[in-house]
Each structure stands twice: as structure tokens, then as C-alpha cells.
Design a protein around this nucleic acid. Structure first.
Length: 544
RNA sequence: GCGCCCGUAGCUCAAUCGGAUAGAGCAUUGGACUACGAAUCCAAAGGUUGGAGGUUCGAGUCCUCCCGGGCGCGCCA
């Protein structure tokens, strides 16, 4: 990474804590990279930035191996032209490192948990969950690639009132199926899948309706939970999403974690009783109001188990960083959870909550999903079957997650140029095709040390080399800022540069030296495209 | 009413935790295949970054107010 080298060079002449940046300048004529170091330093020591800049330029330009030119520009920016010989070695590094190219040690020695989806097991996953799944899963891949030790986790709300309602919903449908006239309650789960579950249970347990009500209800509940959960799991797996841990809320209670957590808060003086309920003094830690943790009827609230869960994440399992991926409608919940962490003596910045905004499904220019009427929504599975995994994941990852997303179903399905996922995959497939041709022609692929690097000398060569050099930095930034879409945009850039190259130059020609050099470049680009796609959970096809 | 998120080209979105003349794709118009895959490429056109102030060498980005949209504000989950 040349950025890192430039930074190192600058630091030989500047104070270590100076918050300067090294980044590509807005226009190509301004060089390959630029820094505002002199501007920032000038402000601090009350010297003219331009004067400082020209001193720095003089010093750094001695590194002929790195820079062909260093200039002062504008109010005191330093512009760098990187030596072509440096760029050419990039292809060597990419090939030597292979699959590890882009890997980073950013998170070395740090444990991070990514908790995502965690939808209530009361029905199938819908498209909103799919977006959360794509973001959470990709983030986990990126963090792992950036050197973190990652645990991916699904938190199952398998207890409490909703489970009772679920069991009762199935039971009522079962009775209905066997001919009974039932007035189905409004606040129960009304989706068609409940009827299917009832039918399935009835065929397994014909005696269901003869059982005492209590027994029947709990049978229905357990059955529904098991079935729905395995359905959720299957949906996610088909979507390319896997978990290390499925964490049961019920077990959290059985292990006594909830009582333990409440006891600790009690001992630290953060709980009080009022109106028959037990409250957490969230206002002492920046939340708007205090929150009930145990209701007057003795039942702990959902919040209580979340306290216990997050306490367990930080204090028992020792995660350095916890990333929660939630639906944006839960945003009001963030302050109270951060308040709990503070109360427990945990730095609240170690919890990062990603709020996933709504997905609007667009079909034929019209809004398709988002009927809030019970049971009417487009499921993850339906969309998966309609548009396919690659297009679906890629589309979800083309936006930062805190902006609402319009998902154009027809566009995602289209195997045409406008569909960005094909654009990137096509670049990869094109390169694969070049290698098939090269093999036919009997052209030998050079070992990294034998590449005629100086034959990579056109502007299009350098454009690709620079992008390849940039990739590790993109990974680090995506990891640091928890923004998977940075990878997506990088891939689009790289694919664009490749397609441009492809129309302007030939990889295989009469000039054998040049062909070998370009073949090496092609392999490096192909490898990084595949790596990037892999981080997104999208396939990199050899043929399309 | 209070809080959070969003507002950028006709449409969908970027803009590297404050940087130089705000960039892509789609749509529109006009071009490029006897060449490794035209699922591609090139060009034109398109903007008061919702509005008004402020902070500073410098603001789409930070602060205040207003407008518009979404979502929250339960001893629900």
C-alpha cells in the first residue's frame, strides 16, 4: 500500500500525533496521491503552509524509488506522483500473497461478535431480514479478513408471551382444520404458514386435540418453534449465511444470567422499585426515561434479558467489540442498552449498533411489499427464488445501511448491463476466458519473479495497478467503519477499469513478453475481483 | 410535542471519520465489433447538495433554526 509508505515518509519529518490525511486528489493531473499534512501542521505551528509544504516536498522527492515527482499545490497540499516502477511491483505482491492479499492485521488479537437478523421465531423471514442478513454476514466476513476473531450469532427469542401466542395460534388453526368453528383473534399470528404448521402437527400427532389444553398448547408451541426455526435456518443457509452460535433466550434464563445481571445492577444501586415494578435508572446514563426491567406481575421484560445477554457478551465472553445489526425501527432501544453498559462499567463505544433501514420492493415501477396487514409480506425465500442469491446480496450491499433501499426486482433479475452484479461478474468471467485462450495458445504463465513488469506501461495498466494497491485499504476502511458497501463500490471501480482495459488493449498478442506481463496483471485483477466478491458472499463465475 | 435517521443530476445512489472544479449507473442523444466474450467501450447533456444563517484557510460533510419524508416515544416483542 503506497498510502502507508507515504505516511511513513511524512512522519519522519512531522509530529506523530498530527491528524493529516493521505488520499487520492480530486483530479488525475494532481498526481496519484495528495496530503494535507502541511496545512494541518502549519495551523499548529503558525507557519505558512506553503512554505512547510515545499520543505517537505524537497525532502520526500529524494526517494526516487517511490516518487517521480512531489509538488506543492493550492493552499499547501502536497501532490505525489508515484514512480512507475513502484506500481509495477504491485502485481507481483498480489500474486505472491495470493488469497491472503488484502488481509490485514487491523483486528489482530481482538474478539468481535456480530449479532444479526435475530428475528423472532414466529414466522418466516421477510425481505427486511434479508437485508440485515446480507449486511451482517458480509460484515462478519470483512472483519475476519481484517484480522478479527469473529463470532456470528443469532439471538433467539424463544420464550415469553409471543411464544404462548404462537402456540395458541397453531392450536386454534388445528381445531379449525378439524371442523371446529373458530373466531381467530386479531392479535394472533394470522399468516398462512400457521395453518400449514397446524396441518403438519396434526398428521404427526393425531391425538393433539384430545390432549388437555395445557399440554396441547405447549406441544403446539414447541413444535412451531422448532419448525419455524429450522425454516429460518434453511432460508439463511440458502442465502449463504451461516452462524457460529444460535443463542437461546430461554437458556439465558435457565442459566440464571438474567437474575444475576439484575442482581449486579441492584447491588450497584442502579435499580429501584416503583408502582410495583422494578426499574433501571437509565436516565442516570443519558437515556430519556427510566426503564422497567421487571413488571408488577413479576415477569421480567424483554429488556431484562437483553441486559443479561449483553452483559454476558462483554463481561463473560470478553468480546472487545460487539456489533448488533437491528431493524431501524428499534433505534429507540440503543440509548437504554448503552446506558446499561455504562452502569456495568463497560465502555459503551464497544457496542456498535447498525440500524438497517427499510427495504421497498419495486416491481413494474410500483411498490410491491410493505403491506403491514398481518401475514402479508414478501419473504426472503420468495425473493431468493425469484432473483437469485448473487443479485439479491449484491443489491443489498450497494447502499450504506442507514438509508432506505429501493429494491427493483426486475433490475435485479435482469441479466443485462444495468445490473451491477453482472457487470462485476462479467469482468471476472472475461478474464477467465482470457486464461482459457492463453492455455489453448500454449502461453506459459510467468512465476511472479519472472514477470516482465516494465511492459505494464500504458495508462490503463497503471489504473489497474493503483486499484489493486488500494484494495487492502478498502478492506480496512470497510472493517473500521462497518461499511460493507465500500467493497461493492470498489469492485465496480475495478470492473470498470478492467472493461476499459479490455476494449483498449489485448492481453494476448504477438509480443510474447508483453503477453506474459499482461497475463500476470489479468491474474492479479481476477484474484482481487474474486476475493472482493467472496467478501460479499457473491460468486465469481468462470463462465456466464 | 420530544428523539433518531434521511433529503445530492429526470430516476437510483456515491463522495475515503472537514479538503482542491460534487462523481457513477440508469434513462436521453450520438458513436465503436473481420481482434482474447458487445452482458463491453467512448462522447454529449444533465446540479444554488431541501432552505436560511453560523464555525474556518476550506462545508454535501460540523453547529443552530426552518421545510419535507421515514421510524420511534408501553409494566409489547
Amino acid at each position: 500500500m503506497i498510502v502507508r509508505k507515504i505516511r511513513e515518509e511524512l512522519l519522519r519529518h512531522l509530529p506523530e500525533d498530527l491528524p493529516f490525511k493521505v488520499e487520492p486528489p480530486p483530479r488525475e493531473e494532481m498526481g496519484d496521491y495528495a496530503t494535507n499534512a502541511a496545512l494541518v501542521a502549519g495551523g499548529r505551528v503558525k507557519r505558512s503552509p506553503r512554505e512547510l509544504a515545499s520543505e517537505l516536498a524537497e525532502k520526500l522527492s529524494r526517494r526516487k524509488d517511490l516518487f517521480s515527482r512531489v509538488e506543492v499545490a493550492g493552499p499547501g497540499f502536497l501532490n505525489f506522483w508515484v514512480a512507475p516502477s513502484y506500481w509495477q511491483t504491485v502485481v507481483q505482491r498480489v500474486l505472491e500473497k495470493g488469497d491472503t492479499y488484502g488481509r490485514s492485521e487491523l483486528g489482530k488479537g481482538k474478539k468481535v461478535q456480530v449479532e444479526f437478523v435475530s428475528a423472532n421465531p414466529t414466522g418466516p423471514l421477510h425481505v427486511g431480514h434479508a437485508r440485515g442478513a446480507a449486511v451482517g454476514d458480509t460484515l462478519a466476513r470483512i472483519l475476519a479478513f481484517a484480522g478479527y476473531e469473529v463470532v456470528r450469532e443469532y439471538y433467539i427469542n424463544d420464550r415469553g408471551r409471543q411464544m404462548e401466542v404462537l402456540g395458541r395460534s397453531v392450536w386454534l388453526r388445528a381445531r379449525e382444520l378439524s371442523g371446529e368453528e373458530i373466531e381467530f383473534p386479531q392479535d394472533h399470528y394470522r399468516g398462512e404458514y400457521i395453518r400449514d404448521l397446524a396441518a403438519k402437527l396434526l398428521s404427526e400427532r393425531p391425538d393433539l386435540l384430545q390432549l388437555p389444553e395445557d399440554e396441547a398448547l405447549s406441544l403446539c408451541r414447541d413444535f412451531a418453534l422448532r419448525e419455524i426455526l429450522s425454516e429460518i435456518r434453511r432460508d439463511l443457509e440458502d442465502f449463504g449465511v451461516f452462524y457460529d452460535v444460535w443463542y437461546s433466550e430461554k437458556e439465558l434464563y435457565e442459566k440464571g444470567e438474567v437474575e444475576e445481571a439484575l442482581r449486579e445492577l441492584q447491588e450497584k444501586g442502579h435499580l429501584y422499585e416503583a408502582e410495583g415494578a422494578l426499574w433501571f435508572r437509565a436516565t442516570a446514563f443519558g437515556d430519556e426515561k427510566d426503564r422497567v426491567v421487571r413488571r408488577a406481575n413479576g415477569e421480567p421484560t424483554y429488556f431484562a434479558s437483553d441486559i443479561a445477554y449483553h452483559r454476558e457478551k462483554f463481561l463473560k465472553r470478553g468480546f472487545d467489540l460487539v456489533v448488533d445489526v437491528w431493524g431501524a425501527d428499534h433505534h429507540g432501544y440503543v440509548p437504554r442498552l448503552k446506558a446499561v453498559l455504562l452502569a456495568l462499567g463497560v465502555d459503551a463505544d464497544r457496542l456498535r449498533v447498525l440500524l438497517i433501514q427499510m427495504v421497498n420492493l419495486i416491481e413494474g415501477g410500483k411498490l410491491k411489499s410493505m403491506s403491514t396487514r398481518a401475514g402479508e409480506f414478501v419473504t426472503l425465500r420468495e425473493l431468493l427464488e425469484e432473483v437469485g442469491r448473487d443479485a439479491m446480496r449484491f443489491t443489498f450491499l450497494t447502499r450504506k445501511c442507514d438509508a432506505p433501499l429501493d429494491f427493483d426486482v426486475e433490475l435485479a433479475k435482469a441479466q443485462r448491463t444495468e445490473n451491477p452484479v453482472y457487470y462485476v461478474q462479467y469482468a471476472h468471467a472475461r478474464l477467465a476466458s482470457v486464461f482459457r485462450k492463453a492455455e489453448e495458445a500454449g502461453l506459459e504463465f510467468p512465476s511472479p519473479s519472472e514477470i516482465p513488469l516494465n511492459r505494464l506501461d500504458t495508462p490503463e495498466d497503471f489504473r489497474l495497478l493503483k486499484l489493486l494497491d488500494f484494495f487492502p485499504l478498502v478492506v480496512e476502511e470497510a472493517a473500521e467503519m462497518l461499511e460493507p458497501h465500500r467493497i461493492t463500490y470498489f469492485l465496480l471501480d475495478l470492473a470498470t477499469a478492467l472493461h476499459d482495459y479490455y476494449t483498449k488493449h489485448r492481453f494476448l498478442s504477438e509480443d510474447e513478453e508483453r503477453s506474459r506481463a499482461r497475463l500476470a496483471l489479468a491474474r492479479a485483477v481476477k484474484q482481487v475481483l474474486a476475493q472482493g466478491l467472496n467478501l460479499l458472499g457473491v460468486s465469481a463465475p468462470e463462465r456466464m
